[in-house]
C-alpha cells in the first residue's frame, strides 16, 4: 500500500517546521511515522504535507536535573530505554520497553505517542501519573499544557493546528517507588489495561500516591479516588483491593465486540491492585 501523494519538508529548526504548519492547515508533523504512515496507507489520514522533525537537534534533547527531566519530542523509545533516565524515572523506561517490538521502538518517538493520543498508549498512563508538561511551540510563543488537559478525546489532544510539541517535561522529584504494569492484548500487544503507579512509604505511612490507567477506559485516566483512599494511611491498615476498586470507578468504559465494559473495569482494578502490591513489597 502506498500513501496518497504529499509534499515533504525536512525541517532543520522548530521555526521552519512551524512555518509549514502555518502555511498549510492540512500539514502534519512526521516523527517516527509508525502511527501516521499506517494511517496514511489506509487513507485514514491524508495530509497534504509532511514536516519531518526528526533531524531538529532540539527535539532529540535528553536532560536530567534535580527539578526536571526533559525528553525531546523526537527521542525514540530505543534511545530512551537505554538512557540514564532509568535512574530517576524507572517508570518511564519500564513503560517504553513494553511498547510494541524492537523494530518499532527504534522508530517510535515519545512526542509521536503523545501527539497521536491513542487511548491505549502506554505512555499516556506515565504522562498522567507524573503530571508531565507538554511544551508546545507556535507563532504565539511557547506554552506548557499539563498532562491532565492534554488528552481531549481518543486521538485528539489540546494541540492547536499551528502548534507543535517540542518536548515533554517531567517535574522532579517523583515518588521513589515506581512501576508500569501492562496487561497486553494477546494479538495486538496494545494495553488492555496499563497502570502507571508511584508512591513513597515513610515510617510505615503511604505518601504521594499517583495512579493512572491506560487502555482499559475510553480515555486514559488518573485514578484519584484510589490515591485519596491511600495517601497518608498506614501501609498495614490499607486494603489495596478496595482502593483499586474505587480508582477503577474514575474511568469511563465502553463495551465492544471482544470485551465488555465490566471486564475492562475489572481489569483496570486488578492491574491497579497488582501495581500497588508490587510497590508495597519493594
Amino acid at each position: 500500500m502506498i500513501p496518497a501523494p504529499f509534499r515533504y519538508t525536512r525541517a532543520a529548526t522548530v521555526d521552519e517546521a512551524m512555518q509549514v504548519l502555518q502555511q498549510d492547515s492540512d500539514a502534519k508533523v512526521l516523527a517516527g511515522g509508525h502511527s501516521l504512515l499506517p494511517m496514511m496507507k489506509l487513507r485514514l489520514a491524508r495530509p497534504s504535507h509532511l514536516v519531518d522533525v526528526t533531524r531538529i537537534p532540539e527535539l532529540s534533547t535528553l536532560k536530567m536535573s534535580s527539578d526536571v527531566v526533559v525528553v525531546g519530542a523526537a527521542v525514540r523509545y530505543a534511545v530512551l530505554s537505554q538512557s540514564r533516565i532509568a535512574e530517576v524515572m524507572p517508570l518511564l523506561t519500564e513503560a517504553v520497553r513494553l511498547i510494541a517490538d524492537p523494530q518499532v521502538r527504534h522508530r517510535g518517538t515519545v512526542g509521536g505517542s503523545a501527539a497521536h493520543a491513542d487511548p491505549a498508549s502506554d505512555l499516556a498512563a506515565v504522562f498522567l501519573a507524573t503530571d508531565a508538561l507538554f511544551v508546545v511551540a507556535s507563532p504565539r510563543g511557547i506554552r506548557r499544557i499539563p498532562a491532565a488537559e492534554w488528552y481531549v478525546a481518543p486521538m485528539v489532544t489540546a494541540l492547536a493546528g499551528d502548534e507543535m510539541l517540542v518536548r515533554v517535561e517531567f517535574p522532579q522529584p517523583q515518588p521513589a517507588r515506581q512501576t508500569y504494569l501492562k496487561f497486553a492484548h494477546p494479538a495486538s500487544g496494545y494495553a488492555l489495561a496499563g497502570v502507571a503507579a508511584m508512591l513513597d512509604i515513610q515510617e510505615g505511612m503511604i505518601q504521594h500516591v499517583r495512579l493512572a490507567v491506560t487502555g482499559a477506559g475510553a480515555m486514559p485516566f488518573r485514578a484519584r479516588s484510589a490515591e485519596q483512599l491511600l495517601a497518608g494511611r498506614p501501609l498495614a491498615a490499607v486494603r489495596f483491593e478496595e482502593a483499586a476498586d474505587a480508582g477503577a470507578k474514575d474511568g469511563e468504559y465502553l463495551s465492544d465486540a471482544q470485551y465488555s465494559e465490566e471486564y475492562r473495569r475489572n481489569l483496570a482494578c486488578v492491574m491497579m491492585r497488582r501495581a500497588l502490591e508490587k510497590l508495597a513489597a519493594e
Binding site: R10, G33, L37, P38, T54, A78, Q103, H106, R107
Partner: peptide, 18 residues
C-alpha cells in the same frame, strides 16, 4: 526488516526520504 544505521526497522513503514 532491514538495518537502518545499524538498527532494525520495518522498511514498509519508513519513507525512502526519511
Amino acid at each position: 526488516t532491514v538495518l537502518l544505521d545499524g538498527e532494525p526497522v520495518k522498511s514498509c513503514t519508513v519513507l525512502a526520504v526519511q
